[in-house]
């Protein structure tokens, strides 16, 4: 294997996917700005809803898929699935951040305050903390299969716990006023804008996950090469030690 093999090649399928997602986003922005009517009560700020909820969908899908991939890797170790799990959790963090920044901006207008302990917002915050923790452990664990199993176990554990957190914060926030239950889709135009935005957001999530997956594979390649090198150095040192001093 000589040098140039690993040098930056961007596959055509990835470029095509980026083009497709860009087109979807243009359609989504068009639908949000021009097709969807402004909300009767909240006015124009209701349009934050499209990107906010779509980001929440993307976050949920990325993190659940990441948790499932971790479980699969734990049961049947596979380098590609492990890299995919890391990529999915990492991308899930991005969309959790998007949810948590758009949420308060929307809440400021519709609830009159930046933050409310609304169940879904609370869940997102806790899930973000758990996902960051899982990623941090994966970075801090020793390289190799043992550290990898620790990260996979924690990511596996996160999904059922997140479900219990969901149940708990629903009960906890049960008496909380929910002004905009379900986000307030009232017209076909809004519905169209919403689903196009969801499609665009999921496409974006897929592209970001793929990019992160490529990075994850490179990280694995570096670790493997380092192990190769140190094993060889060790062999050489042993051989040198056996040879008589001339």
């Amino acid at each position: 294997m000589t040098g140039a093999v690993t040098h930056s090649r961007t596959p055509t399928t990835l470029l095509a996917a980026v083009a497709g997602v860009t087109a979807l986003w243009l359609a989504a922005l068009y639908a949000i700005v021009l097709v969807a009517q402004p909300d009767a009560i909240l006015g124009i700020v209701q349009k934050v809803f499209y990107v906010h909820v779509a980001a929440a969908f993307a976050m949920l899908i990325c993190l659940s898929a990441g948790s499932v991939a971790s479980l699969v890797d734990l049961l049947q170790p596979n380098d590609r699935i492990d890299a995919a799990a890391r990529a999915l959790v990492d991308t899930g963090v991005l969309f959790a951040l998007a949810v948590l920044t758009t949420g308060p901006l929307w809440a400021r207008k519709s609830w009159g305050m930046w933050w409310t302990w609304e169940p879904r917002l609370t869940l997102t915050l806790l899930v973000l903390l758990i996902a960051v923790g899982v990623l941090a452990v994966r970075t801090l664990a020793p390289p190799g299969p043992a550290g990898r199993r620790v990260g996979a176990a924690l990511a596996t554990l996160a999904a059922p716990t997140a479900y219990l957190i969901h149940v708990a914060v629903q009960r906890w926030g049960g008496t909380h006023p929910q002004v905009i239950q379900g986000g307030g889709i009232q017209s076909p135009g809004m519905r169209l804008a919403f689903w196009v935005t969801v499609a665009a957001m999921l496409g974006l999530a897929a592209v970001v996950t793929t990019l992160r997956y490529r990075v994850a594979r490179l990280e694995d390649a570096v670790v493997a090469l380092r192990l190769d090198l140190s094993a060889r150095d060790l062999r050489r040192a042993r051989t040198a030690a056996r040879e008589p001093v001339s």
Partner: peptide, 26 residues
Amino acid sequence: VPGGALLVVAYAVVWVLVFVWIARLA
């Protein structure tokens, strides 16, 4: 509360976030 300003900030924040993320990956 200026709803329009909040709207613009919300979309801007999401896009800045995504581009910073992708730049970091690159």
